[in-house]
Simulated assay, not measured.
Amino acid sequence: MPFRERHIDVGDADLLVTFGGAGPPLLLLHGPSDLALALAARVTVVRPQLRGAEFPDRTMARDALDVMGDFGYDRFTAVGHDLGARVALRLALDHPGTVVRLALIGAALPDVRRLTMPHLVADAPPPGLARAILDLMGL
Rank of each mutant, 00 (worst) to 15 (best):
V17S: 00
T18V: 11
A40S: 15
Q49Y: 01
D34R: 13
P32D: 15
R42A: 15
R47I: 01
G23H: 11
G21N: 07
H30T: 05
F19K: 03
G20Q: 08
L28F: 14
G23M: 11
A38M: 06
P24Q: 15
R42F: 15
G20I: 09
S33H: 09
L39Y: 06
L35A: 05
P24K: 14
V43I: 12
D34I: 02
A38D: 13
L35M: 02
L39P: 00
A22H: 12
T18G: 01
P48A: 00
L28C: 14
A41K: 13
L37T: 09
F19H: 12
L39R: 06
L37M: 13
L27F: 05
A38K: 11
L26K: 09
A22L: 11
A36H: 14
V45D: 07
R42L: 04
P32E: 14
T44K: 12
A40D: 00
L27K: 02
S33R: 09
P24D: 15
L28Y: 02
L26F: 08
S33F: 01
F19T: 00
V17M: 00
A40G: 05
R42E: 15
L28K: 01
L35C: 13
A41S: 12
P48N: 08
R42P: 00
G21R: 11
L27W: 05
A38E: 15
G31V: 05
V43C: 13
L26A: 10
L37V: 10
Q49H: 10
A22V: 11
G23A: 12
P25Q: 09
L39Q: 08
T44N: 10
A36F: 04
V46K: 05
L28I: 04
R47Y: 02
L29Y: 08
A36G: 11
V17H: 05
P32G: 09
G23T: 11
F19V: 02
L35E: 08
L27Q: 00
R47W: 03
L28M: 14
R47M: 14
L29P: 02
A22N: 10
F19I: 03
H30S: 10
R47L: 06
P32R: 14
L27C: 09
G21L: 09
A40N: 03
D34H: 10
L37S: 10
L27D: 03
H30R: 11
A40C: 02
V17K: 02
A36Q: 10
H30C: 07
F19E: 06
Q49F: 06
T44I: 10
Q49N: 11
A38N: 06
V45F: 11
G20R: 06
A22R: 12
L35I: 08
D34Q: 09
G20A: 08
F19S: 12
S33C: 05
V43F: 06
A41I: 03
R42Q: 14
A40L: 03
F19M: 03
F19Q: 01
V46G: 01
T18D: 04
P25A: 13
P32K: 13
A38G: 01
A38P: 04
P32Y: 05
H30L: 05
L26M: 10
R47F: 04
L39M: 11
